[in-house]
Measured scan of single mutants.
Amino acid sequence: VTVHVNRYTYHFDNPEEAEKFAREMAKRLNMTVEIHGNTLKVE
């Protein structure tokens, strides 16, 4: 599972951890999480 935050890319083996990380980053940056299959984008 890949998480994109701005120009950074993070890889996770565990989808739940990836989503938790993405949501935490989105909250911190006041952004939203978009899910595209195995890719989560924080925008």
Rank of each mutant, 00 (worst) to 15 (best):
E34A: 14
K41E: 05
N30P: 01
A26Q: 03
M31C: 09
V33W: 06
V42N: 03
R23F: 12
R23C: 13
F21H: 01
N6E: 10
F12I: 01
Y8P: 01
E43A: 14
M31R: 04
V33A: 02
G37V: 06
I35A: 08
I35C: 07
K41R: 14
N14P: 00
L29G: 05
E19Y: 15
K20H: 11
M31A: 14
F21G: 00
Y10E: 01
I35Y: 14
A18W: 01
K27H: 14
N14M: 06
A18H: 00
N38M: 07
M31G: 15
T39Q: 10
A22I: 04
T32D: 05
H4W: 08
A22E: 01
E24N: 06
H36G: 05
Y8F: 13
V33L: 09
D13L: 10
Y10R: 02
K41Y: 15
K20V: 12
R7Q: 13
H11K: 07
H36R: 10
N30H: 11
K41M: 12
L29S: 03
T39N: 09
V3Q: 01
H4D: 04
R23N: 11
E24K: 08
Y8L: 14
R28D: 08
H4P: 01
R23L: 11
K20I: 12
F21R: 00
K41S: 11
T2G: 02
V5L: 08
L29H: 08
D13Y: 07
T2C: 11
Y10T: 02
V1Q: 04
G37M: 05
V33K: 00
N30V: 02
Y8R: 11
E17I: 08
Y10C: 04
K41C: 12
N14F: 07
V5H: 04
H11R: 06
R28C: 10
N14S: 12
G37S: 04
L40G: 04
N30T: 03
M25K: 03
G37W: 05
N30Q: 07
K41G: 04
V1K: 04
M25E: 12
T39I: 14
H4S: 10
T39G: 06
N30M: 05
N6M: 12
E19W: 15
P15W: 15
F21S: 00
V1D: 01
H11S: 06
V33R: 00
V3S: 01
R7A: 13
T32S: 09
R7T: 13
Y8W: 12
L40I: 15
P15H: 14
E43Q: 15
H11L: 09
Y10L: 04
V5C: 09
T9S: 09
R28N: 08
L40N: 03
A22D: 00
A18M: 02
A22W: 02
A18C: 02
V3G: 01
F12G: 00
T32C: 06
K41A: 06
V1F: 15
Y8V: 14
Y10V: 04
E16H: 10
I35E: 04
N14E: 07
N6P: 03
N6L: 14
L40R: 01
N6T: 07
A22H: 01
D13E: 12
Y8K: 14
E43H: 14
T32M: 11
V3T: 01
H36S: 11
D13H: 08
K27S: 12
A18Y: 01
E16F: 11
M25D: 01
Y8H: 14
A26V: 02
T32Y: 08
N38F: 04
E17K: 08
E19S: 06
A22V: 04
E34C: 08
E43V: 15
M25H: 04
R7S: 14
R28K: 14
R28S: 07
L29Y: 14
A18P: 00
V3H: 01
E19L: 15
T9H: 08
N14I: 07
P15A: 13
R28G: 05
F21P: 00
E43L: 15
A26C: 08
V42G: 04
R7V: 08
L29E: 06
L40W: 11
P15E: 07
R23T: 10
R7I: 09
Y8E: 14
V1P: 04
T9Q: 11
N38E: 06
M25R: 02
H4Y: 09
P15L: 15
V33D: 01
V1S: 06
E24I: 07
N38L: 07
M31D: 02
P15F: 15
G37N: 06
E19P: 00
A18R: 00
A22R: 02
T9K: 10
E34P: 01
T39R: 06
I35R: 13
T2N: 06
R23Q: 11
M25Q: 08
E43C: 13
